[in-house]
C-alpha cells in the first residue's frame, strides 16, 4: 500500500520548470532516497509534498487522498514531518523547547488554559516536557536539553532537527540531506538511527548526496535531473545506470573512499 504517491507532479517558477511531471510512490515502511545534481528540483519536490509550495500540475496523495493545496501545518497533522537542507532549528530556543514546538499541534492546551495556568494546562505542560526529554534521551541528546539550539555542535543540530520532526508524531519522515556536514562516524550513527526509525514503523524519504549512505540504507532510489525523473530502482540498478553516472555520479573519484 503506497503511503505517499506523486502523480505527474510539476512545479513551475515563472519560466522555469523546477519539477517536471514526476511520478513515483513510496510504500509503508520503505526507505526511499532521492538523488540528483544540485538544482535538479529535489528540494522543490519536498516542498511540494510538505505544502510549502502548491504544485503547478499533478497530484500529491497521502494514503490515496490528495493533499494538494493544504497548508504546511495541515500536512504535518496528517503525518508528514521533515527536516531542512540548511538546518532550520529555532536557534534561540532550548533543545527541549524545539521538540515541544513539535508537540504544538497535538497538545490540548487552549489559549485561556495557558493564560490562567489551569491545573490541566500545567499537567499537560509537565507531561509533554517529560515526553520531550525522553525523546531527546532516545536520540542521545539528553545532555543538551537545556542548551540553545545554536549552541549544539553541528552534527547534533541535525539530530535535534530530526527529534523535532519526530515530535510531531509522523508516519512519513522527509529528511533533506541529513548527512551533509557529518563526519564518517556521525554518518554511521545517522544510518543506525534511520534503520531504527524504520523498524519502529516509520516510512522514510530522504534527499542525500552521500552515496555511501544512500546505497547502504535505501530500498529504492529515485533520480532527478533538470526536474525530471531519469531513473528509479534498487541501489545496484541506479549505481550502474549510465544516465545517472553521466548526470550525477561522475567518474567516482570522490566516491572511492565511501565505498571501501
Amino acid at each position: 500500500m503506497a503511503i505517499l504517491e506523486l502523480a505527474g507532479v510539476s512545479k513551475r517558477f515563472g519560466g522555469l520548470l523546477a519539477v517536471s511531471n514526476v511520478s513515483f510512490s513510496i510504500d509503508q515502511g520503505e526507505i526511499i532516497s532521492m538523488i540528483g545534481p544540485n538544482g535538479a528540483g529535489k528540494t522543490t519536490a519536498f516542498n511540494c509534498v510538505t505544502g510549502l509550495y502548491p504544485v503547478s500540475a499533478g497530484d500529491v496523495r497521502l494514503d490515496g487522498l490528495s493533499i494538494n493545496g493544504l497548508p504546511p501545518h495541515r500536512v504535518t497533522k496528517l503525518g508528514i514531518a521533515r527536516t531542512f537542507q540548511n538546518i532550520r532549528l529555532f536557534s534561540y530556543m532550548t533543545a527541549v523547547d524545539n521538540v515541544m514546538v513539535g508537540a504544538h499541534w497535538w497538545m490540548k492546551e487552549r489559549v485561556w488554559d495557558g493564560a490562567l495556568k489551569t491545573p490541566r494546562a500545567r499537567r499537560e505542560e509537565r507531561e509533554v516536557q517529560a515526553w520531550a526529554l525522553d525523546l531527546l534521551a532516545q536520540l542521545e541528546l539528553a545532555n543538551y536539553a537545556g542548551s540553545y539550539a545554536r549552541e549544539l555542535p553541528y552534527g547534533l543540530q541535525r539530530r535535534l532537527e530530526i527529534a523535532r520532526a519526530l515530535a510531531t508524531q509522523p508516519r512519513l519522515l522527509l529528511l533533506d540531506e541529513p548527512a551533509a556536514g557529518l563526519n564518517a562516524r556521525e554518518k554511521n550513527d545517522l544510518m543506525a538511527l534511520i534503520a531504527r526509525l524504520r523498524s519502529e514503523g516509520l516510512t522514510i524519504f530522504l534527499i542525500e548526496h552521500d552515496m555511501r549512505v544512500v546505497m547502504e540504507i535505501s530500498d529504492r532510489i529515485v533520480v532527478l535531473d533538470y526536474g525530471e525523473k531519469i531513473a528509479e530502482g534498487v541501489p545496484t540498478e541506479v549505481r550502474t545506470n549510465r544516465r545517472v553516472i553521466e548526470a550525477y555520479l561522475g567518474s567516482g573519484a570522490s566516491q572511492e573512499m565511501h565505498t571501501t
Binding site: H73, T76, K77, L89, D97, W105
Partner: peptide, 29 residues
C-alpha cells in the same frame, strides 16, 4: 503565563523561523 505556555512557544518559533514553524505543525495564520 501565556509566554510560558504552548502559544508563547509557538510565537517564539514563528519569530525564529516561520517556515520551520509551519512545517512543525504551527498554524502560522
Amino acid at each position: 503565563n501565556i509566554e510560558r505556555s504552548r502559544v508563547g512557544r509557538a510565537w517564539v518559533a514563528l519569530r525564529e523561523d516561520e517556515i520551520a514553524a509551519a512545517a512543525t505543525g504551527i498554524n502560522t495564520t
